[in-house]
């Protein structure tokens, strides 16, 4: 009887080892996202419940926020009128000079329906996929700021790698000084590395995507410099960046097509 139990144990261990060796090859990231796609509807329902519960608990905060936004709205309306005037003037001048407009970007609105279950990676799942013409490496934004890029794409859901994830690296530029660097995600936030030692970057400077590389187009706002210090190697400066988007509270995003 004991011998039988032992042989069963060996079989189980053997199967687990085989699984460890071959399953990752069998189930590539594409297969995994397809399997996760099955859970799209229950995920949408449970995330909907979560957002409602969260909004109810933040009722007072939302009411105050609503009041501030209403105040801001009137001043923004005035500003919009001025900008419309400037836009018309800009168009007339462009026509005069024979400038051609760039192809206009298209946005696909998507809802955040899930996050990484273990809290080890900064990724989100959105409810748009290949069916909605979303594809790998498309840029994801929210409001004015950069959120990340599509990492895996299923039929009706996609996994987005956030800019705060440790695997996220992108080329960036400081808006005021035009200095370039690499924006890297860390567990404690995002950092802009490889700024020169005599860099004039200061707190409050805005950091945007530089457009180098194939993924991120130029001019998407990443965030503001919150502090700047020498790197531990003392070969360059690094700037801590406060992301423009509140990554922890993302509910809706826009995928740039």
């Amino acid at each position: 009887m004991e011998k039988k139990q032992f042989s069963f144990s060996y079989i189980v261990i053997f199967i687990v080892i085989l699984g460890l060796l071959f399953l990752p090859q069998l189930f590539s990231s594409e297969v995994r996202i397809k399997i996760l796609n099955i859970f799209r509807v229950p995920l949408k329902v449970s995330s909907g419940i979560f957002y409602v519960l969260r909004d109810v608990s933040r009722f007072k905060e939302l009411r105050d926020e609503n009041k501030i936004l209403r105040d801001n709205l009137s001043s923004l309306k005035k500003e919009m009128l001025n900008l419309q005037e400037a836009g018309l003037e800009n168009q007339r001048l462009k026509d005069l000079l024979g400038f051609r407009d760039k192809e206009k970007r298209k946005f696909i609105p998507a809802m955040v329906i899930a996050r990484d279950p273990l809290g080890l990676h900064d990724t989100i799942i959105i409810d748009k996929g290949k069916r909605d013409e979303v594809s790998k490496d498309m840029v994801v934004i929210s409001g004015n700021g950069l959120v990340g890029r599509v990492r895996e794409c299923g039929w009706s859901i996609s996994r987005v790698l956030l800019i705060t994830d440790c695997d996220s690296v992108l080329s960036a530029i400081v808006q005021r000084t035009r200095e370039e660097g690499a924006v890297i995600g860390t567990r404690s936030g995002i950092i802009m590395k490889y700024l020169e030692l005599d860099s004039s970057v200061k707190e409050g400077d805005r950091v945007m995507t530089s457009g180098f590389g194939d993924v991120f187009e130029k001019g998407i706002l990443i965030g503001e410099v919150s502090s700047i210090e020498k790197d531990s190697s003392s070969l360059y400066m690094k700037a801590m960046i406060k992301p423009e988007v509140d990554i922890a509270r993302l509910e809706e995003v826009l995928v740039i097509r």
């Binding site: 687990v16 699984g19 460890l20 060796l21 399953l23 990752p24 189930f27 995994r32 399997i35 996760l36 859970f39 990484d116 279950p117 273990l118 080890l120 990676h121 990724t123 990492r151 996994r159 790698l161």
Partner: peptide, 13 residues
């Protein structure tokens, strides 16, 4: 967990 998360598949198992 390997299916639903972005973490390492084999490490999870």
């Amino acid at each position: 967990v390997g299916f639903i998360s972005a973490s390492h598949f084999a490490v999870n198992i």
